[in-house]
Write a protein that binds this DNA or RNA. Sequence first.
DNA 1: GATGAATGAGCCTTCATTCAT
DNA 2: GATGAATGAAGGCTCATTCAT
Lengths: 219, 219, 219, 219
Amino acid sequence: MNDQESNQLIGQFPSVPKQERAYQKRQALLESGRILFIEKGFDHTTAKEIAAHANVATGTFYRYFCDKRQLLMALIKDQLERFMPPRPSWLNHNDPETVLAEQLASHYDRLEKLGLHRVLPELLPHDPELTEVFADARRKLHKSIYEGLKHAKDLGFTWNDLDLKSVAWSIIVLTENIPKMDIDKGANSNYIFVAKIICRSVFPPDVLIKLKSGEKSFE
Amino acid sequence: MNDQESNQLIGQFPSVPKQERAYQKRQALLESGRILFIEKGFDHTTAKEIAAHANVATGTFYRYFCDKRQLLMALIKDQLERFMPPRPSWLNHNDPETVLAEQLASHYDRLEKLGLHRVLPELLPHDPELTEVFADARRKLHKSIYEGLKHAKDLGFTWNDLDLKSVAWSIIVLTENIPKMDIDKGANSNYIFVAKIICRSVFPPDVLIKLKSGEKSFE
Amino acid sequence: MNDQESNQLIGQFPSVPKQERAYQKRQALLESGRILFIEKGFDHTTAKEIAAHANVATGTFYRYFCDKRQLLMALIKDQLERFMPPRPSWLNHNDPETVLAEQLASHYDRLEKLGLHRVLPELLPHDPELTEVFADARRKLHKSIYEGLKHAKDLGFTWNDLDLKSVAWSIIVLTENIPKMDIDKGANSNYIFVAKIICRSVFPPDVLIKLKSGEKSFE
Amino acid sequence: MNDQESNQLIGQFPSVPKQERAYQKRQALLESGRILFIEKGFDHTTAKEIAAHANVATGTFYRYFCDKRQLLMALIKDQLERFMPPRPSWLNHNDPETVLAEQLASHYDRLEKLGLHRVLPELLPHDPELTEVFADARRKLHKSIYEGLKHAKDLGFTWNDLDLKSVAWSIIVLTENIPKMDIDKGANSNYIFVAKIICRSVFPPDVLIKLKSGEKSFE
DNA sequence: GATGAATGAGCCTTCATTCAT
DNA sequence: GATGAATGAAGGCTCATTCAT
């Protein structure tokens, strides 16, 4: 079970409860933790509050998690892939810009629903383990994007004078930070605009026109 | 004096000490606060610790700052411009890529020396005043970059199909996040690579060649 | 239960404990508070001391009372009627002087056992709520005594030239302040002497003689 | 000098300043202490506040008083006689009731102007020295009143069946507590009503009539 | 397992008092 | 003498964690 796996990463104790009731309690605690961490910040949320919000006793909290940090870790590791922006897949679609914009829109949709990205900044600077978890995820994403770019380069589709690793990092940074760009609040055009910029930094104009026109003779 | 001015922003009490001794003590507290905030995080640093680190008694801390948040505010507002990445100035130099790379290098140099950027993420999500201070600074920077881009566009130097506001935001986001791109750790090539990508997202290749070749017949 | 009722007056939180253990702990804290307030004064007693005296940890204090003022309020409101001197009941007994003296003796007996009257003077001048609680109790007592006097007057038993409201206030003031009169310390004759004076200020001598001689043809 | 005398009682240090400037500073501190003690209570007033209110430095406070308690002591001992209610002088005037009422009115006038009676209750229960100072003053007043009563008794003017010491205490208690009787707020009739009651508890009606009619053939 | 009362270290802050200038 | 910055003990209160029921 997925849930069990992710807990293996964190530690053996307290064990994942087998009983259905217990499982639900654990889920309730996770959900309460998520809500309260988002609302009040990690440090300003107490274990007691989480327990109360989940309708269990304070002591019960400690049966399922050794402390609130472990609860957060469980939340995050459970959902790690949700935190990472999408890997653009340029070459098997008609219009890479539109496709990327859609990927971004749905990514931020999921992220917003989870909300935990609001909690991370508080923890990351002083939690080496968490930092490493994310650095690792980003490295994997980077590698994946980089390979996609190299593939495109091999096909002669990219700029020749750009460092592809840097391009991959730029893609990650741009896609991670779209909410910080407050262009035309309300309109969701951010996504398409940023997608255009990203594509422009990858493909020369002529390639882009070809890609848009639907020549899908690759990959 | 510059320092006095910026303190005016924060509040009248406790007043900026007139005496030299007192001034030094205040500086020592600021410096100790800076160091400890960076080292252990804002929430996990206590006023007592800051005082001890500055070799003064706990009570002395409260003579100079009403609480540790005010100390941090003083630190930040003092140095606000250091936090913001540079505004690229493309049009009056030989090679916009090199120039931008140099600007970035020196920006991160200063930022790293200060170190406070490591503390902000902890505060921003739950400190509306601080959030506003930075949002404001970013808006100003955005406006400035955007105007530079518009100027270039009026001269026919930019891509035609990109939204300049988005481009400006992308520049901000990219320049703010270079440390998160761990390309070839140790080498400072990040800066030039990112500078290249930024320039590419602003100027078509032919313009870029002209700019690099030093035709400075504009602005 | 009486104790629960009076606590309703004070506030819902922290709730009156349901468990027997908890109830006893709350009582222990109340009792410790009472003793220490009397011994050292309200301001000079700390929550920590009260907790220690009750053999519980500091934090436990705050489970039962939000602060020491609330503890004192609980003590006082619980025992409000003990603070007030008795309402003399002249007309249904043989000798009003003796009866009043007995009432006074038992009033002070109870008051002394409680001891809290020593704490009030410290609080009253700067605690409007407490002031009002007592002002109210005194107004009620005054009304009751005044009505008793008016009844006596209607029967033609009182002086004609005295303002009955003032007489009622004088009775309250005299009965409240007997301990400040150090007549023959040790002997409890204060009570009878003051009772005599009070009766004299209410009844003309001839009426008094009648009342003492046991004519109980009234009320 | 009166001021020196009262300080002798308190202690030798800090000495009463000889310089005029210093004398004024001391007075300013006394006055500031008086005002702040009345306003915020003794315990809740800090030495620093008193100094600030008197426009002197914190340290200066300690040159004139060893602590705030000593300042209060100085205030009180300076004005001790103002705190005590008047000794009624029945026998050399036309109407003892009116005269007493006037004495009371002017007593409370002075007391209210001083205001310190609002501070005493906070201190008395836990300051043995202060308690003794007042107990002593009350004993003296009691003795004086008692002697006046005995004189009247010797002349055959008083009730025969009342204990004169108790009567004297009752007079003190009544005259001390008039403000607690809220008869007809606004009207100052309290004084005359209470004066009547007091006179009634001292003199039988026939004596009273004689005294009012102005037979001043005694004393 | 579940409960929630109990614990007590530790944080923030105040203030009486001292002392270098 | 005067100043006011500095001190640090102490109080009020919170909360992560334990443990008896």
